[in-house]
Structures are given as C-alpha cells and as structure tokens.
Design a protein around this nucleic acid. Structure first.
Lengths: 150, 150
DNA sequence: CTTCCTGCAAAAGTTTTGCATTAAC
DNA sequence: GTTAATGCAAAACTTTTGCAGGAAG
C-alpha cells in the first residue's frame, strides 16, 4: 500500500461519513468523481471533469457533484470564465489558498506555512473587527503569472 | 451638480478612455450598463443585470459586458452558484476586497483601511516570496454572515 | 423488498451569433 | 460615407429533470 493509497482511504472514509450524515450513500459513481478531483490536485472546471470522466454520464457527474457539495465534501470556486471550479473541500484536504495564472487561467493550490497563515489570520481579524461581519472563513487568491508561463 | 454626478462623470470619462484605447466606442448602451453597475455598488450576477436592464436587450447586455471586460472597465467575480458576478474594475472604483454572506449569498464590497491593506500586502509578499510565482494582484474574501442576516 | 441512485433522453435555461438596420464618427 | 454597434431571432451550449430500470441496504 502506497502513501497515496492510504490518503485515498482516509479521504474516501471522510466523504462516506459526510454523505452518511446527510442520508446519502457513497456509491461507485460518487467515488469516481471524488477520485477525479483527488487525482487532479487542483480545482477543475466542469468541462474538465466531464472530459476526464470518460464513460461517466454527464448527469451522473452533475448529480454527484451536487450531492458531494451539499455534503460538504466538495467546494465550488470561481473562474474568470464564469463557470465554477470544483475541488475537494478544505475539511478533506486542509486549509489552503490559490494562485491564479493570468496567462493560462489555471488555478493552483497554495499551501501557506503556519507562520504566514497566522499573520494572515490576524490581518483578517483586524479587518473584520470593526464591521458588522463575522467571518467564518477567508480566501486569499494571488493573481499573476505561474512558473510554467513565466 | 451632486457629488454622485461628478463621480459618474469621472467614471464615464475613464471608461471612455479605456474603450478608446482598444478601438471601441462608448455608446449609450454601454453607458447604461456601466450605470447599472455603478448604481448597484456591489457585484451583480448576470440575471440581476438582465432584470435591472429593463428594456435593454439581452444581447446588448452580454456584448457590452464583454467589451467592457476586455477594455478593463469591468471585472468578473466568482459566485457560489457558478455564474459570474460583474463589477466595475478596481482601476475605476479603487482596490477593495469582498464579503460573501453564506446566508443570502450576496457579495458586498469591503474597503480595507490603508494600514490594514499594508499589513495584508506584506503577508502576501511573504507568501509569494519563496515561490516561483509573481503576483500582480491579490484578492481577499471574507466568508460569513452579513449584518442583514445576523 | 423498499428506498435510493443511475442513465437516458428530453426539457429548461443560458450565452453566443448571423444578419439586416441603425447609430457613431 | 464608412465603419462599428445594435436588436432580433435562431443556434449552440450548459445544466437540470422525469422516469424506467438497477443497485444498495
């Protein structure tokens, strides 16, 4: 068993738990969708998912994502093109931020070291402090040219 | 002449400039779309724009937004629903961030005071420093429950 | 065996486009 | 006058849904 296999198991277990909590089954189709997202390791657009899905019917992908999103296993993100990007939720893969390349349009995951994440959280707290807004989460996106495109 | 009127003039002038630079005219239709965004003061979804557009034909709204976006006068943002939110670009209305309400789904503008924006920029610099990524912009979104929904 | 999930195909909804007309320069 | 923008309606594309058959508990 490889490290990756173990990671898969943990993720699948967690997804199964979350689905169970909302009265849903973790079926083969839904596992396939989770695997697609897991293998990508970055947020995927619907058309990328559909392409990668191979013989998976379109409606299964849509319905699986919808259920997984409702169960909190998948999160939907922005894209300049206007359609969502799907990713396994932070609860499964950990808190992280994103890099968006202005050239190729890709969105990559950005793991911020604890020290810097701490700094960021303090700034977020300070910003929220004197507003009538109580943040439960924050998202930071760095926009620029990625290593591949530079 | 009110303060708001003066602001409108400045915005319209800047939009006109930007359009001219890409060889486009600032027509009545395009001005109407800019006014809709300006009056909203927050990012609008396409369907909100179409609703607010009244007698403006759908295809004009789409085409105007497309041109304005290409000219850098309008920016498109994420939404949980997957479709974009449109807003006048930061070049026109100044650098700001966003609050996203988990209850009503609204995205509000968030003006960060210079001191805190400075802190934020330092954190962003630190995060980007040891990566092969050169950020040209950053976006911060605070997710939580807004004042109206609390 | 009972409930939920899946796949298909059709429907609904959204965005884009061709082309004749109108407006801008 | 010449070029570009607009409005309409059709086309293309995306997403959702109804329903019969199949799988899961």
């Amino acid at each position: 068993m490889t490290v990756s296999d173990r990671g898969d198991l943990v993720v699948h277990d967690q997804v199964a738990d979350r689905l169970r909590q909302v009265g849903q089954r973790y079926t083969a189709r839904r596992q396939e969708v989770v695997d697609l997202l897991r293998q990508a390791g970055r947020p995927l657009a619907m058309h990328e998912l559909l392409d990668a899905a191979g013989d998976l019917p379109m409606s299964s992908v849509y319905r699986s994502l919808s259920v997984l999103e409702r169960a909190g296993a998948v999160t939907r993100y922005p894209t300049a093109g206007g359609h969502g990007l799907y990713e396994l939720s932070e609860a499964l893969v950990g808190h992280h931020h994103h890099l968006i390349c202005t050239n190729c349009g890709r969105m990559e995951d950005l793991d911020v070291p604890p020290l810097q994440e701490g700094d960021l959280e303090r700034v977020v707290e300070a910003i929220a402090a004197d507003r009538r807004f109580h943040p439960t989460a924050h998202r930071l996106e760095l926009v620029g040219v990625c290593a591949d495109c530079a």
